[in-house]
Design a binder for these strands. Structure first.
Lengths: 332, 332
DNA sequence: GCCAATAATGGCAGCGCTGCCATTTTCTTT
DNA sequence: AAAGAAAATGGCAGCGCTGCCATTATTGGC
């Protein structure tokens, strides 16, 4: 069933072939400790000749020091997470760390199971999205003793390291921007907020800000399932059918916002004069549309990058706020 | 520097606590071999009490059977690869396999280095994109004895397993479709073809088909760097500046095609009467645009899914053609 | 040319588990 | 109730490496 590796060359065989001891080979290969140039050449020649590939499993077990970094992410469809992985991956590869991942589908129970499975690999760090975890997950992570990095959310208490930005602040600023532009009849189109708690935080901060300025949310349309362009289109269609006099609509993210934008294009709804659209994420595609999308650009790649750097450097517990940038665009 | 795990509970400690032998604990935990219900309860209680998490590193070393699956992918920005990972990840998680990955940036040299690094983890399988690998990579993979899965391309000779579809066929069918629709002045907008060899294969098959029907490619604009919506927009702008009388443009993928589409929207170029647009990939977003994008839908998630299933089942060497689907859309 | 440093090197236990084999216990069967 | 089969269990080597310590070769200083 499982795969068995065939006759692999071992360090001991290399040592024999090179006529040196095992520890010497180990030292040469890791460039650690001292050895003569002559020895190094002999060893490297033997490595080359035998096609030796070190066994990191054995090495990790022996040193009880891991260079695995585990990612437990909610989704791979939402471009946010591939972006984070991308940022982290570059740093990890440079430092000879290895990324492993699994996908929770925004299911906290699954997150707990997968986190447990990951810990079995004794990673140097576990990277998780946000702060909302089951009690079991938290307990396990804490007990593991490995570094914990919570990503893309700063509204809560960090377990160890946290890298990202405040979703609540993003929601607040989005609302403030729309209000400043003079919109008063504002609606919302979003996807499943119970699962995507970060979107939920943006939304609630958005609503609070509107309320504080006497312009409470006029209407909302929340679609089941994941965010998508089609859901954004559909959501706006439904919202406008119910509440046609909206001046602006806030979307749970750019995918959804683009759907809304396309709906307006298709129906001849003038943007932003007739209806303003505001998104979240700052996807590249939103800058290439005929009218650049008004949105908030989040530092997704940087989040992964910084998170990986902190892990590699074994930095002390801290919270790193990378902020975000409001892009005025032309749709609001 | 590297992380050291603190006082972790070992199997031996669980055995002591439960008052049984190590092998018994091992059997219970893997549900393998025979043991009494009473013993199982005692063991599980001890596991619970001590918060024992098995060490897969040690287990893998001892059994010399790996449940790691390595992905060496060109990019995480191109949605294709997250999609493949997503498809594979579901199957792998179900079967208690663990996915590890690294990103080559379409650089064959980096691919070789990263493949070597991955083999050090003695994975059960290595998944790579396409058939174009350096001699060194091929030699290494072959020698490793682990399963090799080549993804998303079938135009070449498989090393072991291959899952995907023919990019050449996709290029051919795209050309045939445009010709059938009556377009004769056809251009191309693409990204760096030397790096993305699959896009290169589509393009050359596309051109050959055009040539065979006496409608050779009228012009082309190839942009350096990765594919993106903005590059698609820019590419079409340049192409039309040079060759304004084109009837249709084939794009290297949907991202690029969307850029072209947006360019037309912005410039008031009527689609498809004035200019037809054809993409590749069948992204969801292309179905939510005011005019659905004419494109080819590729089975990306299924590719990952099937690849993982073959690995898990330890299937014999084979090539699995998942085909693709031409979506007529409204832009061509 | 002698001795103390210092550089190189080898030996081997042990990381935490699994696989094999031997042993003990429990069931069946006659 | 005895014998044989089957189930349950424990012991321990060893997976391939690293880390520590002991040992041996070099080097420099006077």
């Amino acid at each position: 069933m499982e795969f068995k590796h065939q006759a692999t060359v071992t360090l001991a065989e290399v040592a024999d072939a090179a006529g040196v001891g095992e520890s010497t080979v180990s030292r040469v290969l890791r460039n650690h400790g001292s050895f003569s140039g002559k020895t190094r050449d002999r060893v490297m020649a033997a490595v080359e000749r035998l096609g030796y590939v070190p066994n990191r499993i054995a090495g990790t077990l022996a040193s009880t020091a891991s260079r695995l970094v585990a990612f437990v992410i909610p989704s791979l469809s939402n471009i946010v997470f591939p972006d984070v992985l991308r940022g982290a991956s570059a740093v990890l590869e440079e430092n000879r760390y290895q990324a492993v991942f699994s996908v929770t589908d925004y299911d906290p129970g699954k997150e707990e199971a997968l986190a447990a499975a990951m810990l079995a690999w004794r990673p140097a760090a576990v990277m998780v999205a946000g702060y909302e975890h089951t009690e079991g997950t938290v307990k396990m992570l804490r007990a593991s003793g490995c570094r914990i990095v919570e990503l893309l959310d700063l509204d809560g208490d960090a377990l160890d390291l946290a890298v990202g930005f405040s979703n609540r602040a993003a929601g607040r600023e989005s609302a403030a921007f729309l209000l400043k532009r003079g919109y008063r009849r504002i609606g919302y189109v979003g996807h499943d907020l119970n699962r995507d708690t970060r979107a939920g935080k943006r939304f609630s901060a958005f609503c609070e800000t509107l309320g504080a300025h006497d312009a409470p949310l006029a209407d909302r349309e929340i679609l089941a399932g994941a965010s998508s362009v089609e859901n954004g289109r559909l959501g706006l269609e439904r919202l406008l059918a119910r509440t046609p006099d909206l001046g602006a609509v806030y979307f749970s993210n750019d995918d959804m916002a683009l759907g809304g934008y396309f709906h307006c294009l298709a129906r001849g709804i003038a943007i932003p004069s007739q209806l303003a659209i505001f998104g979240y994420n700052g996807l590249d595609i939103g800058r290439a549309t005929p009218q650049p999308l008004s949105t908030i650009r989040t530092p997704r790649v940087a989040t992964g990058h910084v998170a990986a750097q902190l892990v590699v450097a074994n930095a002390p517990p801290q919270v790193v706020d990378l902020g975000f940038e409001l892009i005025e665009g032309a749709t609001a």
